[in-house]
Design a protein around this nucleic acid. Structure first.
Lengths: 230, 230
DNA sequence: CGCTTAATTGAGAGCCTTCAATCATCGTGG
DNA sequence: CCACGATGATTGAAGGCTCTCAATTAAGCG
């Protein structure tokens, strides 16, 4: 997709704004469209914060913690607006789970423009707190839940974001590998695999190939996620 | 502090705005000042997101995960702007580590006003991503670091936020208990205590009473935090 | 159909937790 | 000012959950 088509898609879908109205904002001038092949990391400037709009595909945002281990802090799907931190205590990278198209903006300039545009600001005040709250829920899972609860919570979250309902249940086509799942849940591949087997044996999920997961009863799985009600 | 004084303090400190200029924004009308005693939780509406401005004191934002365990997702100090999620998969509460004064706003109305005010929007586009990035760093720590690294990272972070420099080192007056620290790091009190003893034995920290921690050499402690450089 | 890569399963080790006891700190009252 | 008691912090021993290492099985692609 070219820069103009990408940008129009972006303004319309993300801000409900007429692209013509955004022409003079200077936003298009700082937008860098990029295509990322499945499995590759986006080549993004890491000395400053960046904002990314996900046009198509799916990505993960991960911190490198050692040569052969990472911690994924978020998965993203088309339409998502992603804030990517500059290198700090950890170094983050955005990698594609499938062939992906994105629009990259330097965060400072992006926010400068957004601060003066009510529609953009409004949308960002929806998106940023949501990302923050999701990240907090993840921190809670990583800090205080066991492997079984984390996996159940992960599947429920994926069901809500990319599952298609099927009666009282749901079918998910997972775009990420077991390694990605384990890197997201702060576990190992083996533990994820074992927990998934337990869920299978308990009849809470069924799997088809590597990526399809069926949840016959969402509520029963939700009960496994250990979400405490005060 | 009364509502007017609190509100003026807030507009000036948080947005660098002349309080008079904000008079007509309607912001003051939705501001609820509250005083929270040390150890108590703020009585805040939990069916909708809230924004809190911390005037004085110190707070923790924690998710209840069982009757006797919580996960702290952030600590806050005067001047901080805090986004508190409505009850979702977890129930969060804001509790005071010391006697605290706050200003509470319903998030939706707050953001409605902020979207039309460039100074407010600009400030929030600084604050919200910062909170998100800190939360991500916490998720990385909880998911992929061991007890020693988490405690070192915690002490370094506290040194940066509330420590006072002392030569090449730093002295911190911790406002939170060992339980709070363990609830923040996803560990137990005992593990935190043991790791702190290790740091003491290694000469990396010195403690005075329950709350004072001295770090003779910040760089050496930073090396213990296990922050991987790609 | 065979090969490569990913996922599953098993056994043993390690780190943190749990349970329990002791010690220190700090506010209170004599 | 010091003794005292209550709470918080530290230390120790044993157990559990997840990780590591290793082997096997399955999936997907040419």
């Amino acid at each position: 997709m070219g820069i103009h088509a990408s940008f129009e898609h972006f303004t319309r879908a993300a801000f409900g704004a007429d692209p013509c109205a955004m022409r003079n904002s200077g936003l298009e001038a700082i937008a860098a469209p990029m295509a990322i092949e499945r499995g590759r990391a986006a080549m993004i400037e890491r000395s400053r914060d960046q904002i990314v709009y996900l046009l198509s595909g799916a990505t993960k945002l991960a911190a490198a913690v050692s040569d052969d281990r990472e911690q994924i802090v978020a998965f993203h799907f088309p339409g998502d607006i992603i804030s990517i931190p500059a290198d700090g205590v950890h170094s983050y990278l955005l990698a594609a789970l499938a062939n992906t198209e994105i629009l990259v903006f330097p965060a400072r300039e992006f926010f400068d423009i957004a601060a003066g545009d009510e529609a953009m600001a409004r949308r960002l005040f929806d998106v940023l707190p949501s990302a923050l709250h999701r990240c907090r829920d993840k921190a809670v899972a990583l800090g205080r839940q066991n492997a079984a609860e984390r996996l159940a919570g992960f599947l429920i979250a994926m069901a809500e974001r990319i599952g298609r309902l099927e009666g009282s249940g749901c079918i998910i086509e997972l775009p990420m590998s077991r390694r990605d799942i384990s890197d997201s849940l702060g576990l190992t591949i083996e533990t994820v695999s074992r927990q998934l087997s337990h869920l299978r044996e308990a009849g809470l999920v069924e799997t088809q190939g590597r990526s399809q997961v069926a949840i016959p009863n969402l509520e029963m799985l939700t009960r496994c996620a250990g979400h405490y009600a005060a």
